[in-house]
Nucleic acid binder design. Structure first.
Lengths: 154, 154
DNA sequence: CGGAAATACTCAGTGCCCTGATTAATCTGG
DNA sequence: CCAGATTAATCAGGGCACTGAGTATTTCCG
């Protein structure tokens, strides 16, 4: 009795949206490099030499997950990992030439995939789509870190 | 050079949204039962006796994942799994009393959590939020099964 | 009837995602 | 200066998500 309607549950919709994206990514972008892996490459293109924890923060991955993703990228020779001589706890990350080439190649394909993914929406709707999701995600993340100012600097 | 802006990548936003939901679920609903597990319980409340594959279809999980989720729920005594005497390939699923109690208890908490999760949006915005996500997810799923009629019967 | 095709499920393998505990290095205050 | 707190990374463990291959059962058709 009284089963809930999952189509009005944001968590269920978020999961379905992510799954749909996963499948399209595999079909249109790459079967080797995943979307989170691309996010890491993209961050290191913008800010080479970041440490592991900060990269995780940029792309929204916790310490354990970012360690796994980086270890896979490193194993495939897409990035280098060296101990910070100034602070022996940190590992500093830099893309290899191969890593930069891969990023460049996938950037083009990712843009194409996003076009297909968002095709059902008009330009105005896409703006709203981004805005609504961002607001919900940001607010929920804010609940986790009550110490941070409500508008995160940066 | 030329790093992409991930805040305009729907896949990245979808992942962040799901992670935010995961954390809130853990904090406000249950640390034992996950959101996909609740979705399975919910489906079996509405339609007892479904087979495994159909449940997976209802909640959007592939054959392997639904098998794992069901095995966990079964191990915890929340559902029973019996071979269909009419068709020896199928396993038919029914909630136990404990499973129904758990579903009832979590339904209340889930509703509360959704309120908190969607708090940043007005009532109108929530409607748009659901509509946009559903349209994008449905369209992407449609790309996978080109044989299905564009408006799925049911 | 009987073999080929389809179907439901399982298994192995890869990757993402989190928490809690541990280890190593740095920083801080008395 | 040095003991305790903090921080970066690792490790163990549980769960979600997919693909490809394999098994058992049923169905379809000649």
């Amino acid at each position: 009795m009284a089963a809930a309607d999952l189509t009005t549950h944001p968590g269920h919709l978020a999961r379905r949206l992510q799954q749909a994206h996963y499948l399209l990514w595999n079909a249109m972008v790459s079967e080797e490099i995943t979307s989170p892996q691309f996010a890491v490459l993209n961050t290191l293109v913008a800010e080479p030499g970041l440490d592991q924890r900060t990269v995780g923060e940029r792309v929204g991955l916790d310490r354990s997950t970012i360690a796994e993703v980086i270890s896979r990228l490193s194993r495939r020779g897409l990035l280098d990992k060296v101990r910070d001589p100034q602070d022996g706890r940190r590992s500093l990350l830099h893309l290899t030439d191969e890593g930069e080439r891969t990023h460049r190649r996938l950037t083009v394909r990712t843009a194409r995939m996003n076009q297909v993914f968002l095709a059902p929406l008009t330009a105005d709707e896409r703006t709203v789509f981004f805005d609504l999701i961002r607001r919900v995600a940001d607010a929920a993340e804010g609940l986790r870190n009550p110490d941070e100012p409500q508008v995160t600097p940066r």
